[in-house]
Design a binder for these strands. Structure first.
Length: 462
RNA sequence: GGCCCCGUCGUCUAGCGGUCAGGAUCCAUGGUUUUCAUCCAUGUUACAGGAGUUCGAUUCUCCUCGGGGUCACCA
């Protein structure tokens, strides 16, 4: 069975880059009928917070990416790590190193001065006898001193590192006994049964270290897929300083999970010329071997386009429910079908749709100056009064077409062009010269409100 | 600096030895629309450079250049 995982450290919100690797992991698990696990890497007590862990879980909930089984918290697994560290000690695959921090620093400085690679020199590797008085010990793993270590990567191909270039006997447990990252990652992935590790390629250079741990412990090495970074416009790794990298910020801005996920899945992955992917299609078509090798630049123009696409094609009922989050209660509005039909193809986000809706629903309190100058000429009042008279005379006005007929009638009787009534009426109804169809607007707001807006505009602008 | 990865339109990408180098987005223009948006149509823009290999390289190899990642008792 295919088992993937997402393993964030709870130092902040869920990041857009993290979400993409999580999505890839999720899709691959689902495609194979496997499991997608969530592990919270909260071993750094100084930097982690519980709120951050909750925020991450909430973000996944909003996106509808459900993890399988219980969440694994590394902070609760000290006993497990201690057991495996002890095992390595017992088997002579790890050892206590009594070197002080000062000594380590000194070693590094010497190496730097000699332009050598900074690395631990293995001085306690074969140490027997009495440790220095009062010295605290870290535990180091015996890493191979030379020879190739091959990372079989499903995205980049086989990558060969030379142990002498990159490895030393790295620390697997600190002086206080707590295990370090590369150790716990390997242990957890193995114990959780993770078969495919899909993660950012900033982890690529950690992988040889983790392979050392896998091998020392006799664990099966999983398949690796290192997905390229997402870069900011400067071409650097996307970070929290780049703004709008908090996934939940996209909810606030009015993007739907479908749009965001569709946007992210196409960043670094593609399937021919296809741009629109439903969750079902993503699951059916995704394969990590098709992930690009190169980094991509984060640019949300396409997200806007996708978002508009999804809003346009969303049933009104669903839209109305989503709009509540943006402060709009439409459930009881009797013309909400007409309202949303005429507005949903004009908005890029739900937030924008909510604002557009309010512009239609609320009586204008001011009129755009340029619009008035251009579209509310001397004869405007006369035309609007004639139109108002027709509205007053009509007893049944409901559909946009009902209002449209009255507009046509005024145009014919007064022998004027459509613009002669369209422009002033638009200013009266919306306060500006752009917006949805006037007949729809009138149908939505109704007869009384239409008359009110016409009267307001005439007194304000003539 | 060492090690590792990467390099097709501005951006996201297709391509897997022979293509007018395709699509999408953005931008521009035209059409539709009383207006704006949508929608439709059209258009501009790319194989980092240099050597090979080959009848033929965007595609394979090497070098250069450029970009990125990583080098902790952080994760």
């Amino acid at each position: 069975m295919v088992v993937t995982r997402f393993a964030p450290s709870p130092t902040g919100y869920l990041h857009i880059g993290g979400l993409r690797t999580a999505l890839f992991s999720y899709l691959w698990a689902k495609k194979n009928g496997g499991k997608f696990l969530l592990r919270i890497e909260d071993t750094d007590k100084a930097r982690n917070s519980e709120e951050a862990a909750i925020a991450i879980v909430n973000a996944f909930e909003w996106l509808g990416l459900a993890h399988d089984g219980e969440i694994t918290y590394q902070s609760k697994r000290d006993d497990i790590y201690a057991k495996y560290i002890q095992q390595l000690l017992d088997e002579g695959k790890a050892y206590r190193c009594y070197m002080s921090r000062d000594e380590l620093t000194e070693l590094r400085e010497t190496q730097m001065a000699n332009k050598e690679r900074t690395m631990y020199d293995g001085r306690y590797r074969d140490f027997v006898g009495t440790p220095p008085a009062g010295a605290e010990a870290v535990i180091r793993i015996k890493a191979p001193k030379s020879g190739p270590i091959v990372v079989k990567d499903g995205v980049k191909g086989d990558i060969t590192f030379q142990a002498e270039d990159i490895l030393d006997d790295f620390v697997i447990a600190r002086a206080d006994g707590s295990p370090t990252y590369n150790f716990v990652v390997a242990v957890d992935d193995a114990l959780m049964g993770v078969t495919e590790v899909i993660r950012g390629d900033d982890h690529l250079s950690n992988t040889p270290k983790q392979i050392v741990v896998y091998e020392a412990l006799g664990f099966v090495i999983p398949a690796f897929y290192h997905v390229p970074m997402i870069h900011n416009s400067e071409g650097k790794k996307l970070s929290k300083r780049d703004g709008a990298t908090d996934v939940m910020a996209y909810k606030e801005m009015g993007y739907t999970p479908a749009a965001l996920l569709n946007f992210l899945v196409r960043l670094g992955w593609s399937h021919g010329d296809q741009e629109i992917f439903s969750m079902e299609e993503m699951i059916a078509l995704f394969n990590p071997k098709d992930i690009n090798k190169s980094a991509s630049i984060y640019n949300t123009q396409k997200l806007d386009w996708l978002s508009a696409h999804y809003i346009k094609n969303m049933p009104n009922k669903e839209l109305a429910a989503l709009l509540e989050f943006h402060g709009l209660l439409l459930t009881s509005h009797d013309k909400k079908e007409i309202l949303l039909d005429s507005l949903k193809e004009r908005a890029k986000t739900l937030q924008e749709l909510a604002e557009l809706t309010k512009e239609v629903l609320n009586t204008p309190t001011s009129y755009d100056e340029k619009a008035v100058a251009k579209g509310f000429k001397a004869d405007a009042a006369e035309v609007l009064n004639a139109f108002a008279a027709k509205i007053n005379a009509a007893d049944e006005l409901h559909l946009p077409s009902d209002y449209h007929q009255l507009m046509e009638a005024v145009v014919q009787e007064m022998e004027i062009g459509f613009g002669k009534i369209g422009q002033p009426l638009r200013i009266a109804l919306l306060g500006k010269l752009s917006g949805p169809g006037l007949d729809s607007v009138m149908s939505i707001i109704g007869k009384e409100e239409t008359l009110l807006r016409i009267a307001n505009a005439i007194s304000a602008n003539s």
